[in-house]
Amino acid sequence: MKFSIAAASVFALTFLSAAVKADSYTDIIAEFCDGLEVTTPLDTDVLVSGSNATVTVTRVANDHEKTITGLDLYSVDSEGTPKYIKNTWAGQYNLQTSASISDQIPQDTAAGLYYYRVWVTNMIDGQHGPDCIKTSRTFKVATDSHTNEAGFTSYAQSLDDVSYYKPEFAKGCFGLTVKSPAEGETQKQNSHVAIVLQRDSASQTDALTKVEVYRALEGPDKMVDTIWVGKEALANAFTIKDQLRIPSDNFEPDAVYYYKIDVTSQVKGETCSFQSGAFKITA
């Protein structure tokens, strides 16, 4: 299959010093933001509404002066959509190699998965340079807890209840939707298909690594063609252009087909898969 990638995104940076020189936005972000990591909260943490979370940021030491300037709390809803809750902290906290801020989870926070977006500002000649935005792992929030005499803690919500705590979201697999092809569409063999990805700016998905076509008829779904393998950074609007050519030995006119999209997560070592709506193919 013939395949191409087109990505679109909007970036804005204001530089107050001529000292900043880079060939591209990507180069700038790499220069100022590589080596930063939000190490707590952990995905194994369980916090209760109204309790305090410890947000820890680490960095690889270099010549750039960095300051933590804000904490934003986000939730992940049942559909995998990031939801901004509020800015829970704003200030100036100097970051050498490690810094921790104690931050209260709002008292009215509902049960579910949450994470922090941390704003780290680079100072250039005493002035505001580019910001780095890093996210924590998702962590569980329960509305209440009780610890018995034996020291065992129970929570108002079962920590295994996937209606509150979906494991794939804890891996950073949320905030990406395959908008096209849509469910129920009909495509033609040899036609050009636009596979449209919509990525939320607060998603933890990171880079496209593989695109495959699957067939669903009877029994398990079958992978019928791999159309691309590589690594391409995901923008918030992303289009993959494919010339649809299902090999004749894998073409079934009564079947439905869908694209499977594999991506990496910003969570180290994790990968995610998303799929388009199921569509028919005519010869």
Results as ranks from 00 to 15, higher is better:
residue 101 I to V: 10
residue 101 I to W: 03
residue 101 I to T: 06
residue 103 D to F: 05
residue 103 D to P: 00
residue 104 Q to F: 05
residue 104 Q to I: 10
residue 105 I to E: 02
residue 105 I to T: 02
residue 106 P to G: 03
residue 107 Q to S: 13
residue 108 D to R: 02
residue 108 D to N: 13
residue 108 D to W: 05
residue 108 D to H: 06
residue 109 T to I: 01
residue 109 T to E: 08
residue 110 A to F: 05
residue 111 A to H: 03
residue 112 G to F: 01
residue 112 G to I: 00
residue 113 L to H: 04
residue 114 Y to C: 03
residue 115 Y to S: 04
residue 116 Y to Q: 07
residue 116 Y to E: 06
residue 117 R to T: 07
residue 117 R to Q: 09
residue 117 R to S: 10
residue 118 V to F: 02
residue 118 V to L: 04
residue 121 T to L: 09
residue 123 M to F: 06
residue 124 I to D: 02
residue 124 I to T: 10
residue 125 D to T: 10
residue 126 G to F: 06
residue 126 G to I: 05
residue 127 Q to K: 12
residue 127 Q to R: 08
residue 128 H to Q: 14
residue 128 H to W: 14
residue 130 P to F: 15
residue 130 P to N: 14
residue 131 D to Y: 15
residue 133 I to L: 13
residue 133 I to E: 10
residue 133 I to D: 05
residue 134 K to Y: 05
residue 134 K to W: 05
residue 135 T to I: 00
residue 135 T to Q: 01
residue 135 T to G: 01
residue 135 T to N: 03
residue 136 S to C: 02
residue 137 R to Y: 01
residue 139 F to K: 00
residue 139 F to D: 00
residue 139 F to Y: 06
residue 140 K to G: 00
residue 140 K to T: 04
residue 141 V to D: 00
residue 141 V to A: 02
residue 141 V to L: 04
residue 141 V to G: 00
residue 142 A to M: 02
residue 144 D to R: 14
residue 144 D to L: 11
residue 145 S to L: 05
residue 145 S to N: 12
residue 145 S to Y: 10
residue 145 S to H: 10
residue 146 H to S: 15
residue 147 T to C: 14
residue 148 N to P: 09
residue 148 N to V: 12
residue 149 E to Y: 13
residue 151 G to Q: 14
residue 151 G to F: 08
residue 151 G to D: 13
residue 152 F to W: 11
residue 152 F to V: 14
residue 153 T to Y: 13
residue 153 T to N: 13
residue 153 T to G: 09
residue 154 S to N: 12
residue 154 S to M: 10
residue 155 Y to S: 03
residue 155 Y to A: 02
residue 156 A to Y: 12
residue 157 Q to D: 07
residue 158 S to K: 07
residue 159 L to F: 03
residue 160 D to V: 07
residue 160 D to A: 07
residue 161 D to K: 06
residue 161 D to A: 09
residue 162 V to G: 07
residue 162 V to R: 14
residue 162 V to E: 15
residue 163 S to V: 14
residue 163 S to A: 14
residue 164 Y to S: 02
residue 165 Y to N: 00
residue 166 K to T: 14
residue 166 K to I: 12
residue 166 K to E: 06
residue 166 K to C: 07
residue 168 E to G: 04
residue 168 E to M: 11
residue 170 A to K: 08
residue 170 A to C: 11
residue 171 K to A: 13
residue 171 K to I: 00
residue 172 G to Y: 04
residue 173 C to N: 07
residue 175 G to K: 00
residue 176 L to E: 05
residue 177 T to C: 11
residue 178 V to H: 12
residue 179 K to P: 04
residue 179 K to E: 15
residue 180 S to C: 02
residue 181 P to V: 04
residue 181 P to R: 01
residue 182 A to P: 01
residue 182 A to Q: 08
residue 182 A to N: 03
residue 183 E to K: 10
residue 184 G to W: 07
residue 185 E to V: 08
residue 186 T to N: 13
residue 187 Q to Y: 09
residue 188 K to R: 13
residue 189 Q to Y: 11
residue 189 Q to M: 15
residue 190 N to P: 11
residue 191 S to A: 15
residue 191 S to Y: 11
